[in-house]
């Protein structure tokens, strides 16, 4: 797993490449904790995310809860069909804000 961060329109974008599973999720958790400490608008770039298991979903749920409590927002974009399928099965597609593209995720709409 590789994680990189950038900003666009005062949104902190975190790109996660590879997998979010039981092996890699602690690292993703640590990286997201660092971003969440300093940012309220966060977007996750999943363009290069290969697959996600429940360990990865737990990290996302934790981040969503933290941002919701602090009045921030969490948006996701670039999900491949397999990641989207996991989101639909788990119900995460209805509780997290998923956008098709980065432009839509960092826009005001």
């Amino acid at each position: 797993m590789e994680i990189s961060t950038r900003t666009s329109n005062d949104v902190h974008i975190v790109a996660i490449a590879g997998s979010m599973d039981s092996t890699t999720s602690p690292e993703a958790q640590k990286a997201l904790d660092g971003v969440l400490a300093a940012a309220s608008k966060v977007a996750l770039d999943f363009t290069q995310l290969d697959y996600i298991s429940s360990a990865g979903l737990r990290v996302l749920l934790g981040a969503a809860k933290t941002l919701r409590a602090s009045g921030g927002s969490l948006r996701l974009f670039g999900l491949n069909p397999s990641v989207r399928e996991v989101f639909e099965i788990s119900g995460f597609s209805t509780i997290l804000a998923v956008y098709p593209t980065e432009a839509e995720a960092v826009g005001d709409g």
């Binding site: 360990a55 737990r58 749920l61 788990s90 119900g91």
Partner: peptide, 22 residues
């Protein structure tokens, strides 16, 4: 229960559900 809102969800418990569905 995957229909609960985000702040009412217990953390975890989804893994085997994913396996069954996938």
């Amino acid at each position: 229960d995957t229909t609960l809102p985000v702040d009412k969800r217990p953390v975890g418990g989804l893994g085997l559900h994913l396996v069954r569905e996938l």
